[in-house]
Design a protein around this nucleic acid. Structure first.
Length: 428
DNA sequence: CACACGTGGGG
DNA sequence: TCCCCAAGTGT
C-alpha cells in the first residue's frame, strides 16, 4: 500500500493477501505508487515462480475485479498545485459553471453533464439555456410531458439521454433530491461512472476524479500508456483515480475535475497538444518520450456499413405535412419522422419504395440525402408531392403539422434534412 | 467485451 | 470529401 509515509499498508496488504492469494512484493518505496496516496488502490508485484516478475497487480476495494497489468514507466505524482494555478488563470467561463467560490446547483450540473455526454460544448449551449428556461427545476422537468422533453432535445442526438433524463428527474423528485454520493448517483437512470463522479465532485465536493475522454487522454499521456483503447480503459481509470492523491487536489474536488476538462480541451488536445504551455509538462512521460501527440492509441474501428431508405414529404393545400412517430425502441426511438420505408442494406427501386408511400399520387424524386450515424451511413431517397387534401386513412398512420417553420418542428436532424430537400424540390 | 446509440465541427 | 471525435450509458 502506497500511503504517503503512512503505516496502514502492511495491515491492509495482509488483509488483501487473504482475498487474493499470490506472491506479493512490497512496493511501498516505488515512486510510482505515491500516486495513490490515501486512495484505496494497492499496487503489488506478482511473481511467476520464484524469479521473474510478470506483472504489477493493481487492486482496489472500490473496483469489483482484480486489475492486472504491467507498468513500464514510473512517474511522480502530478502536482495538483500547478494544475489548479493554471486553472485559476485560464478557466473557461461556461453557462453551467458557477463562478469561483459559488455553490453549484446539482440540477444544473446534472443537466449539463447529461447533455455534454459525447457532445461538444458549443452544441450544448443553446439546448442548455432552452431547457433551463422550459424546465427551471428538477420538479418542473419531472412534471413535464415526456414528449415535450423529447421535442426540446430534438437535434442534440442520442435520444435515450432525453428519455433517461425525464425518468431520472422523476426518480430524483421521489427521492426528495439528488443523491450526494457516487454510489447514490449511480442508481439514477442515464448516470454512469463518469457522470456520477462528475456530479459528486462538482455539485457535492466529493474528492473523486471523473474519467471522461479528456481525462483518459491526459492520463494516457502522463503515464505514456501505449496500449490502445478500449482495452486500456480500465487501466486508465485506475491511474486517473490517483491523480487527485495530492492534498491540494482533494481540497478542491470540483475545480480539480474541471481543471482536467479544461486542460484536455485546450492544451492537452487530441491532435496537437500545446505541451510547451502545460503545467504538467515536467512530469509527463509521453512528452518525455516524444509521443504525446500520438496518445491515446485506439484500436482500428470497424468499417461503417451503408443502409438505404426512402421517405415521403407530402403537403396539402393548407400547407400541412404528414408526420408519424417512430417506435419506442431503437434508433431515434419515439422521435418524429416522415413516413417511409424501413432501412436496409439494399437500395430501394422507385416502385419498391412507393409501396410504402402514405398516399397514392404523383411523386417527385428529390434525390438522395446522406446522413452519418455512429455505426452506419444512411442514404435516403426523398420523394415529395402536393395533394389537395389528406384522406382520413392517410392521416390514420400519423399526424399533420404545418410545413411553415420547419425549424420549429421538433425533429431529428436527419428528418429536418429530408424535409428541407423535399421543400426545395417542390419549390422549383 | 462489443455493439447500439446522433450530430456537427475541425483538420 | 473524408475522417476524427466530444464532459458516455445501457445491454
Amino acid at each position: 500500500m502506497a500511503r504517503r509515509g503512512g503505516s496502514a499498508g502492511p495491515v491492509l496488504l495482509a488483509a488483501w493477501s487473504v482475498v487474493l492469494p499470490a506472491v506479493w512484493a512490497d512496493c511501498s518505496t516505488d515512486g510510482f505508487l505515491s500516486l495513490w496516496g490515501a486512495v484505496p488502490v494497492f499496487a503489488l508485484l506478482l511473481a511467476e515462480g520464484a524469479e521473474r516478475v510478470v506483472a504489477r497487480v493493481f487492486f482496489s476495494p472500490v473496483l469489483p475485479e482484480r486489475l492486472s497489468f504491467v507498468i513500464t514507466s514510473s512517474v511522480k505524482t502530478p502536482p495538483a498545485r500547478s494544475l489548479l494555478d493554471w486553472y485559476d488563470r485560464h478557466r473557461r467561463v461556461l453557462p453551467w459553471r458557477s463562478g469561483p467560490g459559488q455553490t453549484a446547483d446539482p440540477y444544473a450540473v446534472w443537466l449539463s453533464e447529461i447533455m455534454l455526454q459525447q457532445t461538444t460544448v458549443k452544441a450544448v449551449g443553446p439546448y442548455y439555456h432552452r431547457f433551463l428556461e422550459k424546465f427551471p427545476t428538477v420538479q418542473a422537468l419531472a412534471a413535464a410531458d415526456r414528449d415535450d422533453v423529447l421535442s426540446a432535445w430534438a437535434g442534440l442526438g442520442y435520444y435515450s439521454r432525453a428519455r433517461n433524463l425525464h425518468a431520472c428527474a422523476q426518480k430524483v423528485v421521489e427521492l426528495g433530491g439528488f443523491p450526494n454520493t457516487v454510489e447514490g448517483l449511480l442508481t439514477l437512470p442515464g448516470v454512469g461512472a463518469y457522470t456520477a463522479a462528475a456530479v459528486a465532485a462538482i455539485a457535492f465536493g466529493v474528492p473523486v476524479v471523473p474519467v471522461d475522454g479528456n481525462v483518459e487522454r491526459i492520463t494516457s499521456r502522463l503515464f505514456a500508456i501505449e496500449e490502445p483503447l478500449p482495452a486500456s480503459r480500465k487501466k486508465l481509470a485506475v491511474l486517473a483515480s490517483g491523480l487527485n492523491a495530492d492534498k491540494e487536489a482533494r481540497k478542491r474536488p470540483s475545480d480539480f475535475a474541471q481543471a482536467l476538462f479544461d486542460l484536455g480541451a485546450s492544451l492537452c488536445s487530441p491532435r496537437s497538444p500545446a505541451c510547451g504551455l502545460c503545467p504538467w509538462v515536467t512530469v509527463c512521460a509521453a512528452h518525455k518520450a516524444g509521443i504525446a501527440a500520438t496518445l491515446p492509441r485506439r484500436a482500428p474501428k470497424a468499417v461503417k456499413p451503408v443502409r438505404y431508405g426512402a421517405h415521403f414529404l407530402v403537403i396539402d393545400a393548407a400547407g400541412q405535412v404528414l408526420l408519424r412517430k417512430r417506435p419506442e425502441k431503437g434508433l431515434l426511438a419515439a422521435m418524429t419522422e416522415l413516413p417511409g420505408t424501413p432501412w436496409r442494406t439494399e437500395p430501394w427501386s422507385t416502385e419498391e419504395a412507393l409501396i410504402h408511400a402514405p398516399v397514392q399520387t404523383e411523386w417527385q424524386d428529390c434525390g438522395m440525402v446522406k446522413h452519418v450515424f455512429t455505426h452506419f451511413t444512411l442514404q435516403v431517397t426523398v420523394y415529395a408531392a402536393r395533394i389537395s387534401r389528406f384522406s382520413n386513412q392517410a392521416v390514420q398512420e400519423g399526424f399533420l403539422a404545418p410545413a411553415t417553420g420547419v425549424d420549429a418542428l421538433s425533429l431529428p436532424s436527419l428528418m429536418l434534412k429530408c424535409i428541407k430537400r423535399g421543400l426545395k424540390t417542390l419549390a422549383t
